[in-house]
Design a protein around this nucleic acid. Structure first.
Length: 251
DNA sequence: GTGAGACCACCTCC
DNA sequence: CGGAGGTGGTCTCA
């Protein structure tokens, strides 16, 4: 198991809020330049996570104080799907999804989850704010965010790829984590199950409060990821996955 | 039209 | 407790 465990929260936290300085992937800023509008973000080094066909970047995007604030605001703003919208059909059986889920994005956007297409709600102020921080940090724009709330370690997400056709294949998916730290497991498609014809180590990553994980192309072509049950965890986690959805659907 | 393979879930077993 | 394997209906795509 290839493991990329977080260091404890950065020791800059006591100085928060502070100015953010240029990061490698920033556009429109010169090295060392301070972004006056993002006074809560702080400069942390990107951690490159690579394997065969896997390409991710990980960083702490928000200091603890701001991550706490974002978590609290999202708890007040986000309205999660209920009833039939909160079920999924797998192997012919209907289940409630083992977490809460909501979709926000530009007007009229739809997304498809396990065969069901739904309309995105319009952005909330906090989701817009975080979206803009991610854009300022990565140079990528997003028109959609999927919100997943895991109430405790019992809530989880099974192994899957984010390979829907409506996603812009070259735009990374930006995953922001708030609340309880949880493990994310990547597994190569050719190394899964009993008939695995290749032996490729899974990649394990702990997603910290306030962190940002960028999943770059072609990660989602070759690697599945899951958020497994962790019975010792009793606190909630909110995950935001920002995406770019193509306006014209392919046929 | 049509067959293979995938499957964001659960359970049981070790 | 955690990870692997089986599931057996429906959909998608070649």
């Amino acid at each position: 198991m290839e493991s990329f465990l977080n260091r404890p929260s950065c020791d800059n936290n006591s100085r928060c809020p502070q100015k953010r300085v240029k990061l490698q992937s920033d556009e429109g800023m010169k090295p060392g330049e301070v972004d006056e509008e993002d006074e809560f973000s702080h400069p942390v080094p990107w951690q490159k996570i690579e394997s065969e066909g896997l390409d991710c970047d990980y960083a702490l995007l928000l200091c603890k104080d701001e991550a706490d604030k974002m978590f609290k605001q999202l708890e007040e703003e986000v309205v999660y799907s209920t009833g039939e919208d909160a079920t999924v059909q797998v192997f012919g059986k209907v289940h409630s999804i083992p977490r809460k889920q909501a979709a926000y994005g530009d007007a009229g956007l739809t997304y498809t989850y396990s065969g069901v297409t739904r309309l995105a709600c319009t952005w909330t102020p906090t989701l817009e704010y975080i979206r803009d921080v991610v854009t300022n940090t990565t140079g990528q724009t997003f028109n959609f965010v999927l919100v997943n709330r895991y109430k405790d370690g019992q809530d989880h997400m099974g192994e899957h790829r984010d390979d829907e056709k409506e996603l812009d294949p070259f735009c990374p998916i930006a995953s922001v984590s708030l609340g309880a730290a949880r493990d994310l497991i990547f597994r190569h498609r050719d190394a899964r199950g009993k008939r695995a014809h290749r032996q490729i180590k899974p990649v394990k990553l702990e997603l910290a409060h306030g962190s940002l994980l960028l999943m770059n192309s072609p990660t989602n072509t070759f690697w599945y990821h899951s958020l497994p049950v962790r019975k010792k965890i009793s606190l909630p986690r909110i995950n935001l996955t920002f995406r770019r959805i193509l306006l014209e659907r392919k046929k």
